[in-house]
């Protein structure tokens, strides 16, 4: 099944590159969101920890 002319497969190519970039983008975004959430958790926990410490001191 050899074709004489070059078949037009650019649609597939575009789809492929779009998917590749979107997937990488989603992954990077997910990492960003996860790290942002963790940083928020970290700061809340740190403030809780500090309160804890100051309470203990007062006692």
């Amino acid at each position: 099944m050899f074709l004489e002319t070059i078949p037009d497969t650019s649609g597939y190519m575009i789809a492929g590159y779009v998917i590749a970039f979107v997937t990488m983008g989603i992954y990077v975004a997910s990492m960003y969101i996860r790290s942002r959430n963790l940083k928020q958790d970290l700061s809340t926990l740190e403030s809780m920890d500090n309160e804890h410490k100051s309470k203990a001191k007062r006692k």
Partner: peptide
């Protein structure tokens, strides 16, 4: 890399444009 794959590399004769996904693949 995207530029090289999408514009610089020649179009493959049998499969056409879709062969360009090969580089990222």
């Amino acid at each position: 890399s995207a530029y090289l794959a999408l514009f610089f590399a020649p179009t493959e004769a049998v499969m056409g444009q879709v062969q360009r996904v090969f580089y990222f693949h």
